[in-house]
Simulated scan of single mutants.
Amino acid sequence: MTIANPIDRAKDGIEDETTASAGTRPERVGVLLVNLGTPDSADARGVRVYLKEFLSDPRVIEKQGLLWKLALNGVILRTRPARKARDYLKIWNTEKNESPLKTITRAQSEKLAAALSDRDHVAVDWAMRYGNPSIRSGIAALSAQGCGRLLVVPLYPQYSAATSATVCDEVFAVLGDMRAQPILRVTPPYYDDPDYIDALAVSIDTHLKTLPFVPELIVASFHGMPQKYIDKGDPYRAHCVATTEALRKRMGLDASKLMLTFQSRFGFDQWLQPYTDMTVKKLAQDGVRRIAVVTPGFSADCLETLEEIAQENAEIFKHNGGEQFAAIPCLNDSEPGMSVIRQLVLRELQGWL
């Protein structure tokens, strides 16, 4: 078992494999973990490069017309990067000079590789949909190791076109440039998978026991999405609801004790409601003094959990009368979290191992 070193990857794409015959390489299986992405540096330039790639994806912003391009290049990329860079600096892994999302995703890849180490024909790697290491470089690294079969693992429990589907878009684009394509599988969303729900419940219970207070309720905050995307048929909201309902059942809580909200809205369109920040504010104003927030839509802690929830929303809650606020970590590379990824991968590799 080997893990490809992203530093050694070719950044310019998949090399032409006309000189290599498929029959000369041992058949291997590549597993590629993919998360959303992160800037390469916590400064305005790094954030600008990242945001330009992210916001230029028609899966993320569907109307990529002239007005949007003018707004993106004339306003957003001139003003937003410096502000978001300050937010990234609040949570940046200064030791490794990278975002926590990159640190955690790498750790997930390494631990998965260790768990599959008894299968010497499996290679594990990781990538980001936006930024580095790229999906293209990840596939190149696995291809260079002779992986004729590829399992792509989008680390999004709930499916949406703006996350899961765009991973597939990029994978297909990379494969479209390859002469010798690997056989491809993609793991499905796991929003109501019993292993995932159980891992969430165990993680929440574990962290609640470490708190110096007992929350009056738990807020389950998912990343938001424009309502019009749901109206067009995206199943994301239904998946978030299913996750929350399954978690309530597993933990023995009703809707008043485990609330569903959506965060991170952007722009002027109506997004999925109720909004996390407005909910947190109203709870405090209504006399709730102690809450915990969990983010079941994120497989790894990132800007949206460590800064937006743990800092911004904590401040909103306390500013409006709340007293004690806890942000429960994502599953990350914890044993419950790795168990979810491991079981998902092993199930989808059936017939290949």
Rank of each mutant, 00 (worst) to 15 (best):
P6D: 03
P6L: 05
D8P: 00
D12Y: 12
E17K: 10
A20E: 13
A22P: 06
R25N: 08
E27R: 03
E27H: 03
V29I: 15
L32W: 06
D40T: 13
S41M: 08
D43M: 04
V49E: 14
Y50S: 06
E62V: 04
K63Y: 05
Q64C: 09
L67S: 14
N73H: 15
I76Q: 10
R78P: 07
A82Y: 09
A82K: 15
K84A: 14
D87K: 14
Y88G: 10
L89Q: 15
W92L: 11
E110M: 13
K111A: 10
D120G: 08
H121A: 14
G131K: 12
S134V: 13
I135L: 02
S137Y: 02
R149S: 15
V152T: 01
A165C: 05
A165R: 12
D169E: 07
M178Y: 03
R179P: 01
A180H: 15
A201S: 14
V202F: 04
V202R: 14
I204M: 01
T210R: 02
P212G: 12
F213V: 00
I218T: 09
F222K: 05
K228V: 11
D231I: 00
D231L: 02
D234Q: 01
R237I: 05
A238R: 14
T243G: 09
T244I: 03
E245D: 11
A246G: 11
R248M: 05
R248T: 01
K249C: 06
R250C: 08
S256D: 15
L260W: 08
F262Q: 05
S264P: 02
R265A: 04
T276H: 10
L283N: 03
L283A: 08
D286G: 14
G287R: 11
T295Q: 11
A300P: 10
E304K: 04
E312P: 00
G322R: 07
E323D: 14
F325E: 10
D333M: 03
M338K: 10
M338G: 07
M338N: 14
M338R: 10
S339G: 13
V345K: 04
W352P: 11
